[in-house]
Design a protein around this nucleic acid. Structure first.
Lengths: 127, 127
DNA sequence: CGGTATCCGTGTAGATACTG
DNA sequence: CAGTATCTACACGGATACCG
């Protein structure tokens, strides 16, 4: 048989998802983390999210949440109180996305040490 | 009981993975796509990868592959031929990462249409 | 073929200040 | 509290040219 990469039409067929990943914003730096965070707690507030998704600025969190809301992943609930309270939760669509993303988060928890070791070994070899 | 987000220590405990995701480069735009591509074919060549991961430039693909090699996700095999041939494949660690990423790719295939619809609806409402 | 080197534009994100 | 507005910078990535 053909080497997989030379099989006619393989590249074209396989290439579809790379466009899709971009369309669904899965190439965005913060999207995954925000969705994972939202999947863990119900009705998380803006401030909670900032605390959980470490390193994100208020501006970027706002933009990320807007994009996710626009894409039907996140629902926003604003309460007309003083001081204001806004809660975010995943939509039904968002919960389907949360499943693979949570698996990814678990991979990160589990294997970061190995990655870091490999990195050190690689750098040691270069020196 | 406490609202989840106010439970003491919850934010701190939950926050760990957001650092880990970054450390493992899972916040990189192209990492996921390259790993998915590599998981689908064995011994993919540089040119194959460029064709499959649409939109990536040679420079950025090189950098991405170097980083993944450094992190122990990807193995590089160079053959001293003319013209040169270089093949890339996932390591054992890389294959464990491929599992959740492939699930993510499938989500993208399956739900992009819904995302795009939501986006249109949102924009229509704003207009 | 499979890169690297260089240059350079721009998007992404940080800091800061301000508001309903 | 939950943002918005503005300004800025630098990393990211694209284009081009060249090399082993």
């Amino acid at each position: 048989m053909w080497p997989l990469s030379q099989k006619p039409g393989w590249a074209a067929a396989t290439a579809i998802w790379s466009t899709r990943m971009s369309l669904a914003r899965l190439d965005n730096k913060w999207t995954a983390m925000v969705v994972i965070a939202l999947g863990r707690g119900d009705g998380l507030r803006f401030g909670d999210l900032r605390a959980v998704v470490q390193g994100i600025s208020a501006k970027v969190l706002t933009e990320t949440l807007r994009d996710l809301e626009r894409d039907g992943i996140v629902a926003r609930h604003e309460y007309a109180e003083m001081p204001p309270r806004v809660e975010y939760e995943l939509t039904a669509l968002g919960r389907t996305l949360h499943v693979p993303l949570q698996a990814l988060g678990r991979w990160a928890e589990k294997h970061t040490a190995e990655v870091l070791e490999a990195r050190e070994a690689y750098d040691a070899g270069r020196r």
